[in-house]
């Protein structure tokens, strides 16, 4: 996904001379093409995330469209107060791209894990929170995020994520994207577990459970009208995300459901547990530890249906 980001932002910067790319001392060769084509619009602001967000705010105040790129955990947790005060308070159009969100940097250990980023950013007024499932969704959403009048955060994977779409999908910020239909269970997935979500749906379908799958690439704002219809149509709604069950997509849907008097369907939230992952391991291992495999998630859903 990071290659797709580098390619897409380089293309977008061609037609929009206000785009400025800030990197927090990562992606050295990733942006060679961008740097060559727009030498005065790429800045490595160093290992200084708080400063980087403030600089982005200043660039936006000065008429530019800054895009900030660094490892998700550093962009969000290190600079949270700058995001709140410098970006959200005045609602400045700055796009923050957090690479390796969730467990994308699993092997680097918990300092690099980012399973609470959606929870903390979703709470900020004026912030749009995006989680593309693959490189194609990323490309569509990046262009759309640059058209927003306020700040946005896009949590993306790292590299080699399988493609879900065959080409650039016609997705819009705030509108869930339907990948398959079914009226027993609806799986809402935000981010890179979408291929697994589709496999879970196939498993369920093989035993006669008709399962819809939607890409919830936008976690904030939620499409509440659409949720209202969905919760009347199916028996069980399942959220899947590489993020804590506290405060992510599952949390957002649960909050909405708590205030909705017509949400008949039950809700099952699948995500990472409320704990630090002390074991070393690659992303697949970490997902397994968190119960985010096709087999485990299918079983969780079957159990929920049987209750």
């Amino acid at each position: 996904m990071r290659n797709a980001f580098a390619d897409e932002i380089t293309t977008l910067a061609e037609t929009d001379s206000r785009i400025v790319l800030l990197s927090g001392d990562i992606g050295n060769r990733l942006f060679n093409d961008f740097k060559e084509r727009y030498p005065d619009r790429f800045y490595n602001t160093g290992v200084a995330e708080a400063d980087m967000i403030g600089i982005a705010a200043g660039l936006a105040l000065g008429g530019m469209k800054p895009v900030v790129y660094t490892i998700a955990s550093f962009a969000v947790y290190r600079a949270y107060e700058q995001i709140r005060v410098d970006l959200c308070y005045p609602s400045l159009p700055v796009v923050i791209v957090g690479v390796g969100a969730g467990l994308g940097y699993a092997s680097n250990g918990p300092t690099h894990h980012s399973c609470e980023d959606v929870a903390v950013l979703r709470a900020l007024p004026n912030m749009t929170v995006l989680a593309p499932a693959d490189a194609w969704e990323l490309r569509s959403l990046l262009g759309a995020a640059l058209q927003l009048s306020g700040p946005s955060y896009m949590r993306i994977g790292k590299k080699g994520e399988p493609l879900v779409h065959e080409s650039r999908p016609a997705i819009q910020i705030g509108r869930p994207f339907e990948l398959r239909t079914g009226n027993d269970v609806a799986i809402l997935c935000s981010g890179t577990l979408l291929p697994q979500s589709l496999n879970v749906a196939s498993e369920l379908e093989s035993t006669g459970v008709k399962t819809a799958v939607y890409s919830l690439h936008t976690i904030k704002p939620l499409d509440e009208m659409w949720l209202g219809r969905l919760f009347r149509e199916v028996k069980l709604v399942v959220t899947i995300e590489e993020h804590s069950r506290i405060g992510g997509l599952g949390g957002a849907v649960a909050e909405w459901k708590a205030d909705s008097f017509e949400a008949n369907a039950r809700l099952l939230r699948l995500g990472t547990p409320d704990q630090i992952l002390h074991h070393s391991g690659e992303q697949e291992h970490a997902r397994e530890m968190c119960g985010l495999t096709v087999e485990k998630m299918t079983n969780d859903i079957r159990q929920a249906l049987s209750k």
């Binding site: 600089i55 200043g58 105040l61 000065g62 008429g63 530019m64 308070y89």
Partner: peptide, 23 residues
Amino acid sequence: MATGSLGHGLPVGIGLAMASRIQ
């Protein structure tokens, strides 16, 4: 810009100065 929480003015000022230079 919003100030009151300290340490915000300089980074934002840097960004403003960079925006001016770019343009």
